[in-house]
Design a protein around this nucleic acid. Sequence first.
RNA 1: CGGGGCGUGGCGCAGCUUGGCUAGCGCGCUUGAAUGGGGUUCAAGAGGUCGCUGGUUCAAAUCCAGUCGCCCCGACCA
Length: 418
Amino acid sequence: MKWSNAFIPTLKETPSDAEVVSHKLMLRAGLIRKLISGVYSYLPLGLKVIEKVKYIIRREMNSLGAQEVLLPALQPAKLWKDSGRYEEIGKVMINFIDRRNKQMILGPTHEEVITDLVKKDIKSYRQLPVVLYQIQTKFRDEPRPRFGVLRSCEFIMKDAYSFDKNTIGLNQNYSKMYDAYCAIFDRCGLKFVIVEADPGIMGGDMSCEFMVLADSGEDSILHCSKCGYGISQIAEAKSKHNCPKCKEGKFSLRQAIEIGHIFKLGIKYSKPLAATFLNEKGGITPVVMGCYGIGVNRIVAAAIEQNHDKDGIIWPLSISPYQAIILLVDVSQGPSREYANLLYDRLDGVRIDVLLDDRDERAGVKFKDADLIGIPLQLIISEKNLKSGQVEIKLRKTGEIIRVKKEDVIKKVKELLI
RNA sequence: CGGGGCGUGGCGCAGCUUGGCUAGCGCGCUUGAAUGGGGUUCAAGAGGUCGCUGGUUCAAAUCCAGUCGCCCCGACCA
C-alpha cells in the first residue's frame, strides 16, 4: 500500500477522552475511531492487526482439530430463558422486540446457540468428541464501557466449544486448548500469566484466565514472581504472602488484562437444554462441554500496552499491520522516488507486506509517523543513501540502524523478518 | 446506578469567576513561494448558530433550570 492513497489518519495530539496508553496510541496511530461510548470503528491499519491475530488463532485452533463455524448474533430470548441465564445476565444483554412481536437479543456469548445447534445433530457417542469455534462480534450493554477497546459494548471474540461423552474427554480437550492458548499468546508476542479463576456466571467446575500484566488492567490477580503461579483475586483471599505452590516466591497483587478464559462447563448447559446422546450402553446422557474464549480486540490493546515507547507503538512482528515501511525522505521526483517504487514492487513480489510512505511530507513527519504506527522495519531511502548505493534499515524496537547495499536489501529484509 | 469532571471549527486548548463591540490561540486543512534526514518558514485563505432546549436580561460562550453526550472513580464485568 502506498500511503499517499491510503486512509491512515494519524494524530499529532491525543484526543482528550483517552486515558490509557493503548487507547491513546490506537487513536493517534489511526487504528480506531469512536462512534459512541464503547463502540469503535476499525480503520484499515487496525483491521489489519485484527486480521493478523485472527490468522494466528485460526492456525492454532485448526491444528488441534477444531472446526470453524459462524453462529448468529441475532438470537431468540427464549433460548436464554430455557438455559436459565436470561435473568442472570440481565441488562447487559441487548434486548428488543422484532416486528412479529418476538423478543430477541444480540448474543453476548454463544453457549446457548452452540448447544442448541449440536443437540439437533449429535445423537450418538460415536459422533463425539466435537470441537467447534467461531470468531464473531459479541454485544454487551456494559454499565460502564472504558479504556477504548478494552471494555466495549461490541467486540470480537473467538469462542470455542468442546463436546465430549465424558469428563476424561473434556479434560483432554481442555488441556489441548490450554496449550493452544499459550501458543496463540506467545505467537502474538504477549507476556502473560495464567491464573486459576472463578467461573462465575458461566458455571462449571474450573476455569483458567490468561492475563497480561498491565497497569491499565481492570483485573487484580495474585501472582508469584518466582514460579509464575497465579490466582484471580476474587477466588482467594488476598492475605497470602508467599506463593501457595512453590512456597518461596512472593505473592503480589498485580493489575492485569484478561485476554483469554477457558472453562470446564460439564453439563451446565447440556442438561437444561437437553443436549443428550446415546452412550455405549444405550443410556441417555448429557454431553460434557468445555468453552474457551479469547478477546481479539483485547489482544491488540494488550500488545500495545506491553510494546510501546514514548514515540508510539512497537508491534510484535507477527501482528504488525505491515512488515516493513519504506520511508522516502526526499520528496523530489528524482531517482530516490524511482528506487522507492522499485523496492516496493520487489518486496511486494516476494510477498512482503510493505507500506510505502510516498506522501509529500517532510522527513521529520515521516519519521514521527513511522515510529508512531510502529512497523518493525523502516527502510529509509534518500538521495544521500543512494549516492553511496545504500539503504538504511532502522529497527523500530531498538532504534538500531543497519546499512545495506541496494542489491542486498531484499535478502536482508527477509532475514530480519524471520 | 451513586460520586466527580468536561462539552467553544478536524485535533488540542484559552475566554466563563466579575454578562457588553466583528469569539481567540496552537496544530491541521486550502493556495502561493522558499525549504527538504526527526512534526520547516513566510504570506494569503477556508472553516465555529460556543452540545441542545428553555429562562433571566437592553444584552448570554459567560448567569439559572432542564436535557443530551463524553471521560474518570465506585458498583458491575457471564
